[in-house]
Design a protein around this nucleic acid. Structure first.
Length: 291
DNA sequence: AAAGGCACCAACCGCACGTGC
DNA sequence: TGCACGTGCGGTTGGTGCCTT
């Protein structure tokens, strides 16, 4: 088709932003708000591409950005969400207030990815890197893990040093320690995304998750995915709320998980943990951050 | 002290999607 | 219905600073 460039490249600056450019952008957005990125540079007196302005604002200048290192809780949440959503950094970022998709993406590529590799976990599939490793874990097979397997499965440093490991209970990724505990007390989750066709009955639309993990972007009010569950028997038939498991309930402070309200309804947000036989269940995530 | 390697992260690029005409 | 435009997203690149030799 051939689209016009987003800006006249020969008249735009590139590279690192100067303090003066930052200030101009901040001043303009403070006065006029976000939006109209294409026309913003000219209006703000910036020799920048509109896209560049948008990136600069979103990733660096926005006042609500959280600075500093990622906390262990954020680590766990990122890993959990990535196991569910894949490289959908914007969706992941939406669950981490004050963090940007770019920041999370960089953090994933530079820290978490390496950490998972060092633990013998494929960061894309969240499964053991080789079959031998798989055989030694209960993540997929549900068999009890060998207690002498620490060499191949070093302790996952997903909880902060010195912290109570129970703080990791909301993560889909387990530590060695918590894995041992979970043999008896917890259900280990290993979520594999597969095809979930939208069943939109009203104006709600869905994100369609393909086997490859790719994800067609549509409206994000609801995400319908089919989950294949692996894990230990859940003899109690305990109900598991994925929203709570992934920490969704704490996002934004006042965005409470509505699972309790849903339990009495027919909502599929609350699902019953399956038996050891892998099976598909379709659930719906409601994005509470987008009223 | 200097050079090379590495890690980190801001920024860029190309493409996909939503929307208005 | 199709096109053009604006915006957002994810992958990648390049600059900078730190570390190692």
């Amino acid at each position: 088709m051939g689209r016009s460039p987003c800006c006249e490249k020969q008249h735009t600056n590139k590279g690192a932003w100067t303090k003066d450019e930052d200030q101009r952008l901040i001043n303009y957005i403070t006065l006029h708000g976000q939006g109209s990125w294409r026309s913003l540079p000219k209006a703000a007196g910036l020799l920048r591409c509109g896209k560049s302005c948008r990136l600069r604002w979103i990733n660096y200048l926005r006042p609500d950005l959280k600075r500093g290192n990622f906390t262990p809780e954020e680590d766990n949440l990122i890993i959990s969400l990535h196991s569910l959503l894949g490289n959908k950094w914007s969706l992941i970022a939406a669950r981490l207030p004050g963090r940007t998709d770019n920041e999370i993406k960089n953090y994933w590529n530079t820290h978490i990815k390496r950490k998972l590799y060092s633990l013998g976990i494929d960061p894309q599939t969240h499964r053991p890197l080789n079959a031998a490793a798989a055989a030694n874990t209960t993540e997929i097979t549900g068999k009890k893990r060998s207690s002498g397997n620490h060499q191949n499965n070093p302790k996952l440093e997903l909880v902060s040093s010195g912290e109570d490991s129970s703080s990791n209970s909301s993560s889909g990724i387990t530590t060695e320690e918590s894995a041992d505990n979970s043999d008896h007390h917890q259900q280990q989750l290993n979520l594999e995304l597969s095809i979930g066709l939208p069943s939109s009955s009203d104006d709600t639309k869905t994100i369609v998750v393909h086997p490859s993990g790719s994800l067609k972007r549509q409206r994000r009010e609801e995400v319908q995915v089919a989950l294949r569950w692996y894990g230990n028997d859940n003899e109690s038939g305990e109900q598991v709320c994925l929203c709570c498991s992934l920490g969704f309930q704490s996002v934004g402070g006042n965005q409470a998980c509505r699972c309790k309200a849903m339990k009495s309804s027919t909502s599929s947000s609350v699902i019953t943990a399956p038996t050891s036989t892998a099976r598909h269940q379709t659930i719906t995530f409601t994005d509470f951050s987008h009223p």
